[in-house]
Simulated assay, not measured.
Amino acid sequence: MTHARVWKFRPPAGREDEFQRAYSGTGNWARLFEQAQGYRGTTLLRPCEPGDWWLTIDRWETEADFEGFQRDFGIEYRGLDEELEGVAGEEVFVGAFEE
């Protein structure tokens, strides 16, 4: 079973390309997550209509692996969050799920 964490975002108009580079499966967040045990990848879903919500799905082997990431990389996580301030626009944690 895979632990998945889903977020939705509405980046500011004109910053969609920058958002996509940072939040894609090869972006800034994925590169940080890759340093942790149990990370299985990120999927970025682009909306069909401009201005609608984008979705990210971050996959981990287990919830414990995600919790380990938070514990071990909390400082780096907060730093990247500050660095990308304004790129994500509106953001809402949708929830954690099991696949």
Rank of each mutant, 00 (worst) to 15 (best):
T2V: 15
H3V: 05
H3S: 11
V6R: 03
W7G: 00
F9E: 01
F9K: 04
P11G: 00
R15V: 05
E16Y: 10
D17M: 13
E18I: 09
F19K: 08
F19N: 04
Q20F: 11
Q20D: 15
Y23K: 04
Y23W: 15
Y23F: 15
S24T: 09
G25L: 06
G25C: 07
G25P: 10
T26G: 14
T26V: 03
W29A: 05
W29R: 04
A30L: 10
R31W: 12
L32Y: 11
F33I: 08
E34H: 14
A36M: 09
G38R: 06
Y39G: 12
R40T: 07
G41F: 10
G41S: 01
T42F: 07
L44F: 09
L44N: 01
L44G: 04
L44R: 02
L44K: 03
L45Y: 06
R46M: 10
C48N: 05
P50E: 01
P50L: 07
W54Y: 15
W54E: 00
W54Q: 02
L55I: 04
R59T: 09
E61L: 12
T62M: 10
T62I: 11
E63R: 13
E63C: 04
E63D: 08
A64F: 05
D65C: 14
D65T: 09
F66V: 02
E67T: 09
Q70Y: 06
Q70M: 12
D72C: 11
D72T: 04
D72L: 13
F73I: 02
G74E: 03
G74F: 02
I75V: 14
Y77P: 03
Y77K: 02
R78F: 12
L80H: 03
L80D: 01
L80G: 03
D81F: 11
L84A: 08
L84Y: 09
E85K: 15
G86M: 02
V87E: 00
V87Y: 03
G89Q: 00
G89W: 00
V92T: 06
F93I: 00
F93W: 01
V94F: 05
V94Q: 04
G95M: 10
E98Q: 12
E99A: 15
E99P: 14
